[in-house]
């Protein structure tokens, strides 16, 4: 191992501190805003640390008072959970057979993967007007389920693409051996391929979940009232003239908890899943 010179070591540590502060500072400020009272937040010059700890907004955001902000938040939370779960499971259900098929076709189905990649890159604005017309004609606007179906247009191609590269790593020989033993295709998939590719499945599912959790454009246009998802709820809270900065921050913190926890605990598999999908490993 090469030894580092002292100036280089100092440079490394200084850079690391700068990077750490750059990443953390905005988040810490978001947290501070959520626990400061309004007067602390609107005093000049700005106080970096609140004089009093004010946790009432966390109580407010989960309170069950009728027609209150807490109810609206909890409904949005429920919708986000439902949409992201339905959409990511649906995405997997569509993607698993497709990805396996493309992977085992050994290049004969290349074309379909091009299409998959191309569709993932289509801007939603190119699809949204007819989708609106169609959902409206079917009376299916403002429904969590419709939104999840719409999300399939993003998630199905994406998860197929991720899974395909991972299925490539499952040795086809094991599957062939089982096939010779007379196993049916669904048995092979269930007993051999999917267990072997389980980390990739988890990764793809979680990725899809995060994408659906994050989606804003379709949700803004296709939901209202009881079908709003969290991003729309937060944009409504912040986009208007609600002047309680602390409440906006609190909603932001709460809405970030699930994806941040997922990201944090699964970061290893997320990264490897992404690199395996993005890069021919």
């Amino acid at each position: 191992m090469e030894r580092r010179s002292l100036p280089f070591s100092i440079f490394i540590y200084v850079s690391a501190v700068i990077l750490g502060v750059f990443v953390l500072a905005p988040l810490v400020w978001l947290l501070i805003m959520s626990i400061s009272d309004t007067n602390d937040l609107t005093t000049l010059p700005l106080r970096w640390l609140p004089q009093t700890l004010d946790l009432h907004r966390y109580a407010q955001i989960v309170s069950l008072a009728e027609n209150g902000v807490g109810i609206a938040f909890l409904i949005a939370l429920k919708n986000s959970l439902a949409v992201a779960t339905i959409a990511s499971l649906g995405g997997l259900a569509v993607a698993i057979p497709a990805a396996w098929s493309v992977s085992r076709a050994h290049g004969r189905l290349n074309f379909s993967l091009y299409v998959v990649v191309a569709t993932y890159m289509l801007p939603p604005v190119a699809l949204v007007v007819p989708m609106y017309f169609a959902l409206s004609a079917m009376g299916a606007l403002n429904s969590v389920f419709s939104l999840a179906i719409v999300y399939l247009s993003i998630l199905a191609p994406f998860t197929t693409w991720l899974l395909k590269s991972n299925f490539d790593h499952v040795p086809a020989e094991i599957e062939q051996a089982a096939m010779i033993d007379g196993a049916r295709l669904d048995q092979i998939l269930r007993r051999i391929t999917l267990p072997l590719a389980r980390p990739a499945l988890t990764t793809a599912g979680l990725f899809a979940f995060l994408l659906a959790w994050d989606e804003f454009f379709y949700a803004l246009l296709f939901t209202a009232k009881d079908s709003k998802t969290l991003p729309v709820f937060i944009a409504d809270l912040a986009g208007g003239r609600v002047a309680d900065y602390g409440l906006i921050a609190t909603a932001g913190v709460m809405a970030s908890l699930p994806p941040v926890l997922i990201g944090f605990f699964l970061q290893k598999s997320l990264v490897s899943g992404l690199t395996a999908g993005g890069v021919k490993g």
């Binding site: 988040l27 969290l230 991003p231 937060i234 944009a235 906006i248 932001g252 809405a255 990201g263 944090f264």
Partner: peptide, 14 residues
């Protein structure tokens, strides 16, 4: 992983 996992709308609001 934190900034990446933060929802886009929350990031924009923040």
């Amino acid at each position: 992983i934190l900034p990446w996992a933060l929802p886009t709308v929350v990031n924009a609001t923040m």
